Amino acid sequence: MDNPEYYSVLGLQRGATDADIKQAFRKLAMRWHPDKNRDNAEEASRTFQEIGEAYDVLSDKAKRAVYDRYGYEGLRDGVPGPDGAPGTGYNYKQNAAEIFESFFGTRNPFADFGFGDSTPFAARLRKPGPRKAEPVVRDLVCTLEELFNGCTKRLKITRKRFAPDGELRDESKEVTVDVRPGWKRGTRVTFPSEGDEAPGIVPADVVFVVQEAPHARFSRGDGAQLVYCAPLSLADALTDCVLEVPTLDGRVLSLPCPEVVSPGYEKRVPKEGMPISKKPGQRGDLILRFKIVFPKYLPDDKKLKIRHILAGEIDMGEGHTGGIEAAAPKRSATAPRVSPGAA
């Protein structure tokens, strides 16, 4: 094991007593003894070795003390002594059979019941099992709406399987992936041993990796942030307006924007972003990034009025009708729809 959790392997808590450790080992070792699991010899052998290693550490007071205090790395690398000299690291010798024999007084307590009486237990552990084929990895393309709301994907896979006559033939199978709200690009869904069969190998796992299809209006930000690019006319950027922003679940948010919007300005809407898959019911924030749409042409008289207004040179007293189409409603020419006169 690369970074074993010995208590979890034996199904124990850290405060387990010596009796608890022995009882857990007795139960699990009998359950996963390879001579009792001929139909699942590879998994049984691996699990049996893990159980033996966990017991080897936790049943030894010195090893357990180091593991409890410094974790597996401290146990593996050794803890320096008081004089700074390097300690002796722990290296499991793959001796589950010896541990089992020492504990039970026999290497194969199942021989009387017909298990393992023809193949020595230790030899079976040393014999390599069938090789597992490399995973078959496929893309699972989801729209942003599907990742926001969740959905069910039904996918057809074709693999080679042994027919009753012993020949390999193509076989189709439909698998189902329940996409959870908030899943991100790179999320992996594994279907164990659903790949091709072949002589002397364990069929490969089929792995689907979530990919996010491009969206016309939205993109994913950091974490659960959802980013919306909001086109805004120059007039609306300089005066107050209301943005009507469509959401990925079919709603429309009416968002007042009374502030002056300058290039690069962003507006944050809490809890309107992507769902957080590990925290059902919670969402990230919606980030509005504005794209200010400048007019392509202005006549000279309007240029002069704009210059005067922005420079504060026109007296905007009662009855004055100068400026940028003062009586005309303000609405962006491009999505999102903008309502004038927000409070």
Rank of each mutant, 00 (worst) to 15 (best):
P4Q: 06
Q13P: 00
R14G: 12
D18T: 08
D18P: 04
A19F: 02
K22E: 15
F25I: 05
K27V: 13
W32G: 00
D35K: 10
R38K: 15
N40S: 11
R46M: 08
I51M: 06
V57K: 01
L58I: 05
D60I: 00
R69T: 14
Y72L: 02
G74C: 03
V79M: 05
P80L: 01
E101N: 11
F110H: 07
G114T: 09
G116M: 00
R124A: 06
L125G: 06
K127A: 11
A133T: 15
E145D: 10
E145C: 01
N149R: 15
C151T: 15
L155A: 02
K156W: 04
D165H: 07
E167F: 03
T176Q: 12
D178A: 14
D178S: 11
R180L: 11
P181H: 07
G186E: 08
F191H: 04
P192V: 00
D196N: 14
P199E: 15
P199W: 10
I201E: 05
D205I: 02
D205W: 02
R217P: 00
F218L: 08
R220E: 07
D222I: 08
D222P: 06
G223A: 08
A235L: 12
C241R: 08
T247Q: 09
L248Y: 00
R251W: 02
P258S: 01
V260Q: 14
S262M: 14
P263W: 02
G264Q: 04
E266F: 04
R268S: 09
V269I: 15
P270F: 09
P275H: 05
K278F: 12
R283L: 13
R283P: 03
R289A: 08
I292C: 12
V293A: 12
P295I: 04
L298A: 15
D300P: 00
L304E: 13
L304R: 12
L304K: 13
K305G: 11
D315E: 14
G323K: 04
E325L: 06
A327H: 09
S332Q: 03
A333F: 09
T334R: 13
P336S: 11
R337L: 15
